[in-house]
Structure formats: C-alpha cells, structure tokens
Write a protein that binds this DNA or RNA. Sequence first.
DNA 1: TTGAAAGCGCTAACAT
DNA 2: ATGTTAGCGCTTTCAA
Lengths: 349, 349
Amino acid sequence: MSTVSNVLNGRSGRMRKETLARVENAIAQLKFHPNPAALRLKTGRTSLIGLLVPSLANPMFGAIAREIETFAQERYGHRVLIGSTYRDKEKEATFFEDLLAHGVRHVIVISSLADERHFDTMIERGMTVVSYDRLAAKGRTSKVVHVTPDNFEAARLATEHLIEYGHKRLAFATVAGMTLSRSAKIQGFQAAASHSGLQKTAIVLNGGLLDEYGDSVMSEIGRTLAFQLAADPSRSTGVVAVNDLMALGLMAGLREAGLRVPQDVSIVGIDGLFLAALSNPALSTVQLPVADMARAMVDCAIAPKAEGEVHACEQVFMPTLLVRRESVAPPPVPATESATGRGARNARA
Amino acid sequence: MSTVSNVLNGRSGRMRKETLARVENAIAQLKFHPNPAALRLKTGRTSLIGLLVPSLANPMFGAIAREIETFAQERYGHRVLIGSTYRDKEKEATFFEDLLAHGVRHVIVISSLADERHFDTMIERGMTVVSYDRLAAKGRTSKVVHVTPDNFEAARLATEHLIEYGHKRLAFATVAGMTLSRSAKIQGFQAAASHSGLQKTAIVLNGGLLDEYGDSVMSEIGRTLAFQLAADPSRSTGVVAVNDLMALGLMAGLREAGLRVPQDVSIVGIDGLFLAALSNPALSTVQLPVADMARAMVDCAIAPKAEGEVHACEQVFMPTLLVRRESVAPPPVPATESATGRGARNARA
DNA sequence: TTGAAAGCGCTAACAT
DNA sequence: ATGTTAGCGCTTTCAA
C-alpha cells in the first residue's frame, strides 16, 4: 500500500524498477484514480480552485473566468469552484467559509470589496488568495497577491485618445461606490486632462449604485448617465467609460436621447470585450490583457511556493493597446456656445 | 458522537430535549461545521453540483450559470463546480470523470454534444444528469432529465413577427453543426414560413463551425453570413438568428456591408440577453425564461427523488414573449426586382 | 525495499 | 437515549 502511495507521489526512487513497473501496470490496468475525498481528508489539500466574481452575467468576468478555468485545468489539473458575490460582504464571507470547508486552499477573487482585510484571516487559515483589479492599500502589508491591469494607464490612454481628437470638455463615467480600480481610472483620466490643461472642464459622472442584481445593471446606469449628459447644454463632448458595458449603455442612452455617437459625443471604453466590436458605432476601447492576467492569477494561486517565501507580490499588467474603432471623432463645432443643447433640466450628477 | 451525528442529520427524535439543547449549544459555541471531505468520504455525497457550459465567455451561458449558481446555493446550499467544454467530446468526458472522482452526483449540462449516450454511463455510475436545450432523442429512453425552452416555438414566434411586418423572403441564420436545439429552431422557422405560403423563399443560412475558441466566434459567423447576404441581390429581407449573439454579429456585418437594419434587412434574435437592448438598432428578440429554466434544472438535479421513481422527465418552457424593439420594419419596397442588389458574387451558403 | 498500522472526521450499525 | 466501534481511501510514520 505505501509503495503504491509512493509511486503515486513520485517517490519512485524508493523501490526497485521491477516493483515500480508492477505497480504502474496495475494502476493502468485498473484505471486507478486516487479518490480526491480521501486525499483531501488525509492531506487537507484538494485539486479545486475557488473563483469569486461579482457576477457571472457580466461578460468581462465571463471572459476572465473562461481563461482562468482553462488554464487552471490545463496547467494544474485543477477544477474551478465558482461563486457570485454581487459585491456583497456577507456572500463573500460565506463563500470563503465554504471553500475552506471543502478544503480549497487557492482562491482568486475578482474585484471584491474595497476593504480586503478579511482576506488576512483566510490566509492565516492556510489559503492563498489572489486578488484581481487592485493593489495593496498603502501602508498595509498583507500576504494577498495582487494581479491587476494598470487602470491608471488604461484610463489615461483612453483620455489621451479623446484629447488627440480635439476634445476639450471631458467626462469620466462610472458607477457610485468607489473601488481601488475605479479610483485609479479616475486618476488616470484626470492626469491626462491636466496634462493638456483640461482639468477645469474634466468631470466625473457618477451613476447609480450596482444593486444586488449584479453587473448587468452596469449598462442601465450608463443609459441613465447618458440622459443626464444629453440634458446638459454645455455637456462634455468626449467621455471615457469605466468599462465597456458602461460605454455600451452610454451609447444606447445617448441615442435614445437624440444624440449621435461620435458626431455629438465621443465614447471610449475600457476592457476590450468582443462585444465592443459589435456595437454601432463600433466601440473604441482600451484592450486589457485578459488571458495574460488570468494565467498570472492561476500561477500565483496554485504554483507551490518556497517555504519562507514572502508571498505578497504585485503584478501590474499594461493595457495592450487602444483599439481604435468608430466611437470617437472630433468634437462638434459649436454654432454658439449652447447650440447643441435643448432647454433642459440641469441634470449633471 | 453518534448523538451529535443524529442532531446534525435531523434525527433529533432519538434523544431527549435536554441533550439536543446541549448539543446544539456546543455546535453554536464551537461554530462547528461538518467537514465536507469526511462526509464525502463516508457517504459518497458532496454538496457540489457540476455545471458544464460550452463557454463561459458566451453571455447567454453566463446568464444561465448565474441563475443556477444563485439558486443552487440559496435553495440547496450547493456550490458550483464549473467547466467549459468548447463542445468537445474529450473535454466533456474528462470533466465527468473528474466530477465523479470529486464525488459530485448532480450535474447540469448546457447544450452539449448532439449525442448524449455517454450520459447513460454516468447515470449508471450514480449521477443525476440534467441536460439543457434538448429533448430526448426519439425512441431512446434514457434517464437523462431534459429541461429546454421550446425552441420550435421560439423560432416560430420570431418568424411570425417578420411575416407580420410583410416580409416575403425569409432566412434563418445559424452555425454549421446540427444540434437538436438548432434543428428545432429551423423547424419552427420553416413551419411559420409554410403556414404563410412562404416556404419557397425561406432559406437556411449556414455559417462556419464553432471552433475551439468557443462561442465568442458566434458573432463572427454572423458577420460573415451578413456579407453573404449583402452580396445577394435577391437577398432575404427578414432574418431570424439562431441566437442573440448571431443577431448582433449579423447586424454588425450588414452595417459594414452598407446595408441598414431594419430598413434594408430586418433581424430577430432568440434569447433575450440584456445586451440585445443595447444594440443599435435595439434588437427585437424572443425572450427565454432563463431564471425559470435554471431553477427547474437545479431542482431536477438536486431534489431528492423517491426510490423507484422513473427519472426521465422532460420539461419544456415556453418562450415568455417576443420583445419588440427596433430591428424589425417592413421590407424595403423594391424599385425593380433587384434594385437593391449590387452585382455580386453569388455567395449564398 | 516493502509491509503494517494509525488516523484524517465523519456515519451507521450495534451494544449498552 | 447514549456510547462504542468499524471503516470510507488515502498518507505517513515506523518496523521488518
């Protein structure tokens, strides 16, 4: 029995070849697969990785989940235990408890709550947690691994694109509720604006709060924001959306409000969803390196670490590039200052 | 010990109240949670449910997965072990093996291969498998539970909508590779066409094959099909897409080819993704009852069944309704028979 | 180099 | 009504 165990665990040096062959033969013959439950019970390990997303219905998270699942499986033979948090602290905590109970030691958390102190508890209990879309808070040394796109840079790139086309009145459209990634994007937006002396007219449009229905309301918020924008005679002519879904909602809302994209308002998204190519006009967006980030997350989560290794690493991925499509054009030439407006409730957020 | 076990398993009748209270107290005090691995090892059961989707990156499957995950958790306290198959037989089989090894007894398979005989093996090995988007093949009695929208009816509804607007030349756009759901849709399409004497001009447009990249190429295929359509002087004026993603791709392609939706060509989708409301023009589509179906699948998969119960049930869900938006209009009035065409390579599929 | 035995945390049969 | 025990399938000492 222990010899078989040794074979299974690669300690084939401790027996003579003949025995090894005999065991391997039997394993093949019987199609023997170690029972994960027994393994789990004995060792505490399991070949499962936890994945926490705000909502599976959000195509961006779907895209990331897809890459994570594929890679974890191919590279490490791990399956994925998935859960939606709807950005709810309670749900997130419950999920972590369940994971622990199921023996899952590796978990990837996509865009969780602003506060990640609760991760430390889990790490002390033996988990490796990889957090997406944020960096460690200043002054805190946690053992959480962070993998994130450079959100500042992504937003800066998007904003630059608008400036390059001559836009003077810029806006950044986001949802209420501040996360690190959102504030990094806002900073990138403002940095780009300031760099061109446009900070005075660069505004942040804060839409509604994501409710329990998760991220499929993101585009609804974009739509609402679009109406606010449309109602403002001195509206921004170029807007950077916090993500592609927001951008899509913005475009739909603008159109409903009678404004044209890009003739009246230009829009740039961030993410690079395949859906961005399908919109009308096709959405210009900053492409994030989804597959690379997914691989990095899986590696950080699962790869065996050297014993004393301080495991807090931070990986920041550059946005691959700006995908220029059709949603950006030069700003409209104003006949008079407020020619494009229609007498409106002053509805800026 | 066994008393505790009895408490945990609801057999609280076998002890006196006082003991029950004492045990419950201790459980609360110690925050005791039964170890799933031990439970699994002992009983063979686990509180995990398997979910197989063609691709997580497909928003429709994301939407379904979201509902399944939420309901399985809320109703049964089950977590979801998810995997993408990319519609590959090998990957599907591997996933099933892994599930079995992990002790998972309940699995939901979304839109799998045409042939589902391999499920029988798994069922014999103690699994409950629920299959989405198909009915049992005629003449076969398997123990697979089927939950599906009425695809025939969905396509019929979509087609009727086009006919109602006066379209005479109809097309159904789909991908290569026949699944039961796709063929049911085609039949619904043809039935509606025939019903109005339009069968002569009702054609099926078969796009490319879904490759290993999964369903994000669905819209690419739509785009390609759009070019074929545009090149045909006597093209169909109303097209039903096999799903919303295909419809979105079709619209993008048509636009690139210089055709307008709905003025030149009308499009109807099937699914009712939230994305359909965001397109330009907003996509008219047949809404499927995603949440209801998800619940039904989870119930069928997990709910304890009476012993001898013949377990093959078939649940067919009616499409809730047609969502009328902007992608359908009356057909263009032809100046002469082929006025709208541009001398084209005859490119029909 | 191999075998024997303990034990991971439970459940269920059995004994008390 | 409660306690005792075997055993689910492994890993890992320890002994041979």
